[in-house]
Design a protein around this nucleic acid. Structure first.
Length: 215
DNA sequence: CCCTGATTCGC
DNA sequence: GCGAATCAGG
């Protein structure tokens, strides 16, 4: 495929929104990030001046490709890009589940039939900061053995922050989101899944096994 | 290692 | 004009 007018327009838009060359390449398809960068330069919009308002959302997109604000009205042309508000997990009142909506809860689609996601840690409802924490995966949902083995694996977690998550890192939350003791597993994720081997095994369980364990 | 954008240069 | 290869950096 080549640089049709529409594709160029898309490129311009996305670039202005602050998306990375690789993201743009992925969305356009049939082009590499190199091609995108090359085009960007030839178009002379490399300095990314058009509009800095959307620069921040782009970062979050790496971890949560779900939905990002497409455009925000910018009153006046800003010369300096607005500094990106850095989401500090422990400082943010919001629960983890609010942001990586696509990351934390197990995917409801793309999962093979007969397998169902189990209750996850941070995901209940909106829990105000300072409130009692949502329980970690409870023992009645996950077998003691599996739980123990996961705890072991978690000792080797990479302890990534929200911003450090990529498509290939395990997005399982570990610890208390309201404190410094919070991070994401970060170990290599299983291809196509949001979690590493260990966490996939607790997140996705055969319906049969799960039913049998219920009280 | 994962990723970023910038540059070069043969096509 | 195009984009792979490469560079420089986080």
């Amino acid at each position: 495929m080549s640089w049709t007018d529409e594709r160029v327009e898309l490129l311009k838009t996305m670039w202005a929104e602050g998306k990375s060359a690789s993201q743009i390449a992925k969305e356009l398809g049939s082009v590499t990030r190199n091609a995108v960068i090359g085009k960007v330069h030839r178009l002379g919009l490399s300095s990314r001046t058009g509009d800095a308002s959307a620069a921040a959302p782009a970062a979050a997109e790496t971890a949560a490709p779900a939905a990002a604000p497409e455009k925000a009205p910018e009153p006046a042309a800003r010369v300096e890009p607005a500094p990106a508000p850095e989401p500090e997990p422990a400082a943010k009142p919001e629960p983890v589940a609010a942001k990586p909506a696509a990351a934390v809860p197990p995917p409801t689609s793309g999962v093979s039939i007969g397998v169902t996601p189990v209750a996850l840690p941070g995901r209940r409802q909106i829990v105000p900061a300072g409130q009692p924490l949502p329980p970690q995966p409870s023992a009645n949902e996950i077998s003691p053995e599996a739980l123990a083995s996961v705890r072991e694996v978690e000792k080797t977690a990479r302890k990534l922050s929200l911003m450090e998550l990529t498509e290939r890192t395990c997005k399982w939350p570990i610890g208390d989101p309201a404190t410094e003791e919070f991070w994401f597993c970060g170990l290599p994720s299983v291809a196509g899944k949001p979690y590493c081997e260990a966490h996939v095994s607790v997140a996705f369980q055969p319906m049969q096994a799960r039913r049998d364990r219920r009280r």
